[in-house]
Nucleic acid binder design. Structure first.
Length: 153
DNA sequence: GCCAACGTTGGC
DNA sequence: GCCAACGTTGGC
């Protein structure tokens, strides 16, 4: 069992969109970064990930569960999709996505400010300056630590 | 709005 | 294969 973090701009696809989605499940498509893609390929059903809003009010607002392991991101084949990439084809898919389902919405979101006050999280990928990875692994220690804060509130 | 960090592109 | 230029991300 591994832990992850999914970043998203709330006005693009936020927790409200996920809540409204069928079965509160969505495909995590549109990732066009090799490192992030490789992390998605490593995900297993049942793995958990934080749902993070970037932007004006950065915060972790919940937890999602991987419910479908990596499969080709067909949006990359659609010329009219904003994430179209001619290098990817149905025969040789380059980009992949997973399906995630809302597992838990925190009663109170954990703001980045709140998280950065925690020394124990200083070496977390998310908290590193200049970290732009939209899909990233989270250690069990960091995951548990953050869950403890979230549930304690 | 600013700017640092990072990934990608393309000339050589 | 190097690296400068450029575009994007994302916190502040």
């Amino acid at each position: 069992m591994q832990y992850w973090l999914f970043k998203t701009e709330p006005h693009c696809f936020g927790i409200e969109d996920l809540k409204k989605a069928k079965n509160q499940t969505t495909s995590w498509d549109g990732v066009r970064n090799y490192q992030a893609r490789n992390f998605m390929k490593a995900m297993k059903c049942g793995d958990l990930g934080f749902f993070y809003h970037s932007g004006k009010n950065p915060e972790i607002i919940g937890v999602v569960e991987i419910v479908k392991e990596a499969y080709p991101d067909h949006f990359a084949w659609d010329m009219f999709n904003e994430h179209f990439d001619a290098k990817s084809t149905p025969e040789k898919p380059l980009w992949f996505m997973v399906d995630v389902k809302l597992a838990e919405e925190f009663k109170e979101p954990l703001s980045r400010k709140r998280l950065s006050a925690e020394l124990a999280l200083a070496d977390m990928e998310l908290m590193k300056k200049g970290s732009r990875l939209s899909v990233q692994p989270v250690s069990k220690e960091h995951f548990d630590y953050i869950m403890k804060i979230a549930l304690h509130k």
